[in-house]
């Protein structure tokens, strides 16, 4: 199975481990990922207004690169990139006016031919969790893991269409396939505070606190995430809460799902 692969800004730096484990596990599972040429930042956020045409260029260029590479699917890891690409692609496909405007600026016309997928999605649909379970070398038996979705993977649901927005299961089924015990907790899809933590740490701290308590109360020993920003928020504000002596004083590790996968595949 072949995919174009878009790493995005953070995966080459702060989240190198995410990329490394993703690439190694993909290889182990027989997935062929080819990094697209000449990519730049996807913009990190999907434009929420009707006026920003320029914000679309970078993701559309990357999609064009993916198409040029000859693969039908573009694989992403960072939930932010996934959100931007998936929504952009859908908008280009469905909004003729927008498509025309964008293509007026680009050398080559793009009409939304590439399919944007997340690695989790590939594991579910292309690899198959049953197959994955067979390939597990080191079962994660007894590990109580809390999947944390955050917002970007699932919302807005009409555009992302990855899983049920309120009660998703893809992460759970993934962890189950690896033999882990999945911790269900109501806050798994609640926002971690996202980029607010850059400017307004109190808000992020409060958001993370709720998530943490909820996961902990339900027996979690670690968070599993798919987004560098989620990981940063969950880690940093745990530390802060702990250091400040404020409740809750917890220390739950936060790992990328690819790290867990690498572990299970004994890589």
């Amino acid at each position: 199975m072949r995919y174009s692969y878009y790493p995005g800004c953070t995966l080459k730096t702060m989240a190198k481990i995410y990329e490394d484990t993703a690439l190694s596990t993909a290889k182990a599972l027989g997935l062929n990922l080819t990094e697209i040429k000449e990519w730049q930042c996807c913009g990190a956020l999907y434009p929420l207004n009707t006026e920003e045409i320029f914000s679309f260029f970078s993701p559309v260029r990357a999609l064009l690169q993916a198409r040029a590479g000859g693969e039908d699917k573009l694989l992403t890891l960072c939930a932010g990139c996934y959100n931007v690409f998936k929504r952009t692609n859908k908008a280009v496909r469905e909004d003729g006016e927008l498509r025309r405007k964008i293509n007026d600026y680009l050398e080559d016309d793009y009409i939304g031919e590439v399919e944007v997928v997340h690695y989790l999605e590939v594991l579910k649909n292309d690899v198959g969790f049953a197959f994955l379970a067979e390939r597990v070398k080191k079962k994660l038996t007894g590990r109580k893991l809390a999947p944390y979705y955050g917002c970007l993977l699932l919302k807005p649901w009409a555009e992302m269409d990855l899983d049920d927005v309120e009660n998703p299961t893809i992460f759970e089924n993934f962890l189950t396939a690896l033999g882990a015990t999945v911790v269900d907790y109501p806050y798994k899809t609640e926002c971690c505070g996202s980029y607010l933590s850059m400017a307004n740490e109190d808000i992020a701290s409060a958001a993370v606190g709720r998530i943490l308590v909820s996961a902990y109360k339900n027996g979690a020993e670690a968070f599993v995430v798919a987004c560098p920003l989620c990981k940063y928020n969950l880690e940093e504000y745990q530390k802060e809460l702990f250091a400040a002596g404020r409740e809750p004083q917890l220390k739950l590790p936060v790992v990328y799902f690819t790290e867990i996968l690498a572990e299970a595949l004994a890589l």
Binding site: T13, G43, G80, Y195, S197, M198, P228, L229, K231, Y232
Partner: peptide
Amino acid sequence: APQQGLVS
């Protein structure tokens, strides 16, 4: 902070 957060 990850780049993603700063850019956002």
